[in-house]
Design a binder for these strands. Structure first.
Lengths: 341, 341
DNA sequence: TTGTAGGCGTTATCAC
DNA sequence: GTGATAACGCCTACAA
């Protein structure tokens, strides 16, 4: 039984337009007919054909979400963000079409953009120089970036202020008396590719370390526990004087923890760790990690809000949101141990 | 510039149908006209309007993927699966529409189903008695389940044979001389709700333990590290004679590891652990976990294949795929220690 | 080899 | 308060 509006109209003994108006409420319909129609609809679980509606209305009621390619497996933060976007979109009765960019998924991205499959896009993992942003600039598809480009005024985005957060970590550690601090950053490849959080986090580190007049060492580290472990092993071997780590590489955390345990450094008595991570990972660190918890769910909500606004008013000046959540003091930071001899 | 097929036709000096045929290749078009058309299309980056095409063709070229509600944060396995589905779908030039079920997301699910937003659905986390499966049974929307219901013949699905895998873990541990083995299962709530992996894993445990004539203790455990730690602490306190754990709760692994370290049990010399988990988590366990690696990416590929088949032939008898990957021997299992006195 | 025309299911304009 | 009808952009018989 292929239910369509015509069938509902026939069964209710009215015209198709009346059914349409009864549904949309865009013009008055007598109580009697409305109820007859509603009954018929309920009995047949009719729902308007989305494609027909999209064709007629020129909008799809669908948002596109462009995730990083599958190869680079998603972090907890990204995952939480995706779930949050689906949630927030559902709240607004919007669906979410997923696409991965990078790799050889350009077809999928192009379908979204020029096939008018979506009313707007959310782009994850924006690079400082981002081809997708350039591409979208040439169309008039509304979009919101998670992360900002080198020219941030030109577009809508939501981002975390990694520079400020890493700086806060450094200040917190410096306040505790640490004079030798290492930054465990994301991978060298990501940073070379113009990955904002890595670059801005580094900047925040360099600046704050200079401001406090203390020694800072930056290390790149791939996004997995093994790399975290290797990186910290190297750090401890080459720079035994370091007493604290700041990190924005959440996937490396388990490895960082393990390497410290192996090396016999007790956290936080001998060694402090502070970072930027999803709350869940911070809490799973042993001891629980003092960290600025990346508010992925909130970012998702805000990004969807911004996008909905932008879809409604595509020409309005682009809005931005730079989040800097406070550091949650947990158990991984303490006063620096007396200097080793 | 609202590009549509008519506009392309006008610019190329041909009729709309000629453009359409040039694009689809469903009837010959002279080289000269084809080239003219292709040039115009390239210059204008025209792509057919997906909604119009969907309306006309009665198919959307879109797959629906129903994920668990956001509250229950996704595990690594699920995450890898989602990415795999997007990948496999993109390979077949299909898009993926995301929806979460459960919670109050029924609207979103209903939109997918009766609004004809998708050509078919993949349902994650199938329960033994699953309302969504019942709902889909009353429509003719093709779908593939990840997991199977109590009546598995009636539908298409891809599943992991948790019973067999847990049994293999038990046999492996028994072969190593362990006589007291505990199963760390998923949460009591999940199991009470008819969660297949938990129930079937339990069955495999009970059966294999009986077959080997050894003592088995089953413990439920929520999906996070904290719960894993608490569960193992309790286990060691109440059953100090236990020398091995089998588990299918990957999210609990970090906690399991931590509790064992805290209790001074050295793995694998004093204590063995085997399980079912995503490969990445198995490798991040210390020491690397002997486990059956859930092939989430392969499941995704297979599920998409099955679904595409089913969309093409909705009436064909439902196909199933029960995967039982081999156990990868890593470093977390060893012969049982001499009995404690 | 190419063009004409009808219809997919909606919504919205116009008429009653 | 309600009904007929055109249009959204595409595909595809049917004609030429």
């Amino acid at each position: 039984m292929a239910m369509n509006i015509g069938e509902i109209a026939r069964l209710s003994g009215v015209s198709r337009s009346t059914v349409s108006y009864a549904l949309s409420g865009k013009r008055p319909v007598s109580d009697e007919t409305r109820q007859r129609i509603e009954k018929v609809i309920k009995d047949s679980d009719y729902r308007p054909n989305a494609a027909a509606r999209a064709l007629k209305e020129g909008r799809t009621r669908t948002l596109g979400l462009v995730i990083p390619p599958a190869g680079a497996s998603l972090t907890h933060i990204q995952l939480e963000f995706v779930a949050g976007v689906v949630e927030a979109a559902a709240q607004a009765d919007l669906d979410v079409l997923l696409s991965s960019s990078g790799g050889n998924h350009e077809r999928s991205f192009e379908r979204l953009v020029s096939g008018r499959r979506v009313d707007g896009l959310i782009l994850m993992e924006i690079r400082l120089h981002d081809l997708r942003v350039d591409r979208l600039g040439r169309t008039n598809v509304p979009f919101v970036g998670i992360g900002r480009t080198a020219n941030p005024e030109a577009m809508c985005w939501v981002d975390v202020d990694y520079a400020a957060l890493i700086a806060r970590c450094v200040h917190h550690l410096a306040d505790l008396g640490h004079r030798q601090i290492a930054l465990i950053n994301r991978s060298a490849e990501l940073i070379a590719a113009g990955y904002g959080p890595g670059l801005r986090g580094r900047q925040g580190f360099v600046d704050s370390v200079a401001e406090r007049g203390i020694a800072g060492i930056e290390l790149a580290c791939a996004d997995d526990a093994g790399a975290g472990q290797a990186t910290v092993e190297r750090l401890l071997a080459e720079h035994p004087e370091v007493t604290a780590i700041a990190t924005l590489n959440e996937a490396a955390l388990p490895g960082i923890q393990h390497a410290l345990v192996e090396a016999g450094r007790s956290v936080p008595a001998d060694f402090s760790v502070a970072g930027v991570a999803a709350r869940r990972w911070a809490e799973e660190f042993r001891p629980a990690l003092t960290s600025a918890d990346v508010p992925a769910a909130e970012m998702a909500t805000r990004a969807v809000e911004l996008l909905i606004e932008r879809i409604a008013a595509p020409q309005s000046p682009p809005r931005h949101l730079l989040l800097a959540p406070p550091i949650s003091l947990r158990s991984s930071t303490a006063p620096a141990p007396p200097a080793r001899t």
